Simulated scan of single mutants.
Amino acid sequence: MSALETFDHQQQAMKRVLLATGPGVLVLFWFYGWGVLINLILAGACAWIVEASICRLRRRQLGLPSGDLSGLVSATLLALALPPYCPWWLCLAAVASALLLGKHLYGGNRNPFNPAMLGYALMLVLFPQPMTHWPAPHGMELLASLQQVLGIQGDAPDAWSQATALDTLRINKSLTMDELFANNPAFGHIAGKSSEWVNLAFLAGGVFLLQQRVFSWHAPVGMLASLFVISLLCWNGSGSDSHGAPLFHLLTGATMLGAFFIVTEPVSGAKNPRARLLFGIGVGLLIYLIRTWGSYADGVAFAVLMMNLAVPALERLAEPKPQAVDG
């Protein structure tokens, strides 16, 4: 396969990834309203400006490997991970840092870290308050949404923001799981009130990508299986010290977005199928450890970045060992 054919194949795969985010975008919009679309527009515009500027500096035509759709994909995934109605500058800073520090700093197509997760983690460390300021599941009018994003004084709805299910569970000391699900508005049927539907939507998009063979099953199955197993082993029922049931962890936070759209990123991830499986297993284990005993409620971004560091070791570990020849 020629270089041009390989590039065209990669572009087609990126288009399928963007298409597969559709169900998740629709469900997010249903619960949170215009803030989701504003994030996507800001992120897409910022990605185009950054990619075009880098291509101009390198005197390359936009559309060659330094300016392909991978930048737009990273910006889209980052926009979906950011809180709806976050300040406009936060979205732009996240995308710009993701593409500049996570992609183009290493030449554009050899980045060791997942760009979207690098941008997200950097913003979470630098600006923890707006990054953890999630709205309650309700929509806002377009004008009010723009006022909120732009920082213009406007009247937000009552109980506009609330702690997520993962935040609530992490700080819970006295209420049982049954009481949380019965009385806390952040909890739905088996997970977070909105996140369970959002995760199912991204699961549907992920199944589509698997059916289209955009990536192999190894990394997403490894991540989901390890998260399920460790949460099952550590699950201690519905008491006040419970860390959540396996289904709670699978359908809360950014689990399915991470499993099918983040750990499958081809450049920063492992290449060997066995290494991909080990990569996914490691991400799933780290997500649970960070959610349960770490300082951050979700942990997908940090888990992916830490496993990015382990990719070379995983590749060596997955290599078939030469068999001794009897002389």
Rank of each mutant, 00 (worst) to 15 (best):
R110N: 14
N172E: 06
G188V: 12
H243I: 04
P157Y: 00
A75Q: 04
P137M: 01
S242N: 03
R291N: 01
N114R: 00
A245K: 04
Q162S: 04
R316L: 10
S174A: 11
P128F: 09
T264H: 01
A225E: 01
N111D: 11
I190R: 09
S226E: 01
A159N: 13
V311C: 10
N184T: 07
L82H: 05
N272R: 03
A225Q: 07
G188C: 13
M123W: 11
I54S: 02
E196Q: 15
A201H: 07
S216P: 10
A303Y: 05
A98D: 02
C46Q: 07
W134Y: 12
L203S: 05
D178N: 14
L92T: 13
L233D: 01
A303I: 04
L277I: 02
T252I: 01
V207A: 04
G269N: 02
A259D: 02
V25L: 14
E315A: 11
L233I: 13
P312M: 00
W235F: 14
A121P: 15
A52F: 11
F260D: 00
L77K: 03
P135M: 02
G24V: 11
S240Q: 10
A259C: 03
R316S: 10
Q11E: 10
P87M: 00
F279A: 01
V50G: 06
G327P: 15
V267W: 01
T164V: 07
L257M: 02
Q11V: 08
V50W: 11
L118C: 13
Q147N: 15
L257N: 02
Q162M: 11
I290G: 01
S295Y: 03
G239C: 07
A156Q: 11
L203C: 11
G205D: 04
P137V: 04
L77H: 09
V17S: 04
L210S: 06
P266V: 00
L80G: 10
G237H: 04
E315L: 12
G44L: 11
G119L: 02
N236M: 08
L72D: 03
A186M: 10
L150P: 15
Q212P: 10
L142M: 14
R60D: 00
L203W: 09
N308T: 09
L146N: 08
W293H: 02
D167K: 04
S295W: 05
D326G: 07
G294F: 05
Q11N: 08
A259M: 01
S74V: 15
L57W: 15
V214A: 00
S70F: 02
M14W: 15
W88L: 02
R213Y: 04
A324K: 14
V283Y: 00
